[in-house]
């Protein structure tokens, strides 16, 4: 049965249902117990499962990820939380050199069913060390899987899949989407990792976006439809592994592509998507692949500046209009 709940509640429900179903699942992180996490993503879980399965930890990102790696390698299915995505940098060795490579380096005998959850994205006036979108850094590492849901339905399905996954996964919760409401089935379900969603079919141009930018792009697409511009919107949902097939197929149909992300443009994940499109659909393209992303500077604090920093509906619309205006081959 489906009813409307928030993005946060969808996350919380996925964790709760998996903890009920599987005793090896436990959570650890700063302030996640009695307080329920600073974003309330873990609210009420310690009440139901106790302090040994919802563990409040001291402030040490390195230790939080490290304990997750150790526990995962010995048969548990830990979910560990890093309050802000920016703080994964503190624990980068545990993620990049340990969690990601353990199965490979142990000759295949180690399994690391670890889920790292973290709050990403900007738009909340949280400044340079609490607003970054660092997905390109982690998608670059063989051995990790990375998801970034754009709505409550995907959140629950992807989080459930992450918990059941036998590889280390990183779930990026977008901080601006926490209160977003949407239809979510009560019963547990999985969205297979590595499958994109086509949110809107269109014939003129393909827009690939993730996280909060999916919703921005979707609204722009609806608006442009009134002007006769038919936009297809694709949300990869999983950033690693990326569902390139869905993207390429779409571009072969529309012949034009715009990629939108919050991260800085230079060496952002959009560069990889653009490269794959030109490798697989070069002969179909009517225009160079366009990217809408952040400038090459840290995220500013004040909304007066951040509004210029973050990709906006206006910038997305302009990029789509520009690419559609180019004459086709």
């Amino acid at each position: 049965m489906s009813r409307k709940i928030s993005y946060v509640q969808a996350f919380n429900e996925a964790v709760r249902q998996e903890m009920r179903a599987d005793e090896t699942v436990f959570c650890a992180g700063e302030d996640i117990g009695g307080f329920g996490g600073v974003f309330q993503t873990y609210a009420g879980l310690q009440e139901e499962f106790g302090e040994e399965r919802v563990v409040d930890t001291p402030i040490s990102e390195q230790a939080i990820i490290g304990l997750g790696v150790g526990a995962a390698a010995t048969g548990s299915r830990p979910i560990v939380d890093i309050m802000f995505m920016d703080f994964i940098c503190v624990a980068f060795d545990q993620i990049v050199n340990q969690a990601a490579k353990m199965k490979y380096m142990f000759g295949g005998s180690a399994t690391v069913p670890l889920t790292i959850t973290t709050g990403g994205g900007g738009g909340l006036s949280a400044a340079a060390q609490h607003s970054q979108s660092l997905e390109a850094l982690i998608c670059h590492i063989p051995g990790l899987k990375v998801v970034h849901p754009s709505n409550p339905y995907d959140m629950k399905g992807l989080m459930t899949a992450c918990i059941r996954e036998d590889n280390p996964t990183i779930m990026i919760k977008h901080k601006r989407l926490l209160g977003m409401q949407g239809e979510v089935p009560e019963e547990p379900y999985m969205i297979p990792l590595g499958t994109a969603a086509t949110l809107r079919e269109g014939a003129d141009v393909t827009v690939v976006a993730w996280g909060r930018m999916v919703n921005e792009a979707f609204d722009v697409a609806e608006k442009l439809a009134e002007d006769g511009i038919d936009v297809e919107v694709i949300d990869p949902r999983t950033l690693q592994p990326l569902d390139s097939e869905t993207i390429v197929e779409s571009v072969r149909k529309t012949n034009r592509a715009v990629i939108v992300h919050e991260a800085v443009r230079f060496a952002g994940l959009g560069a990889e998507v653009a490269a794959q499109i030109q490798e697989e659909a070069f002969d179909y393209l009517d225009a160079p692949v366009a990217r809408v992303a952040a400038p090459f500077s840290p995220v500013p604090f004040t909304p007066a500046l951040e509004q210029h920093y973050q990709p906006s509906a206006a910038r997305i619309e302009q990029a789509i209009r520009d690419i559609v205006a180019r004459p086709g081959a």
Binding site: F296, S297, L305
Partner: peptide, 17 residues
């Protein structure tokens, strides 16, 4: 204040990077 948004223009985002 942050409410009135009277901070420097968008061009200052690129200073001091």
């Amino acid at each position: 204040s942050v409410k009135t948004g009277d901070v420097g223009s968008a061009r200052t985002m690129f200073d001091d990077v």
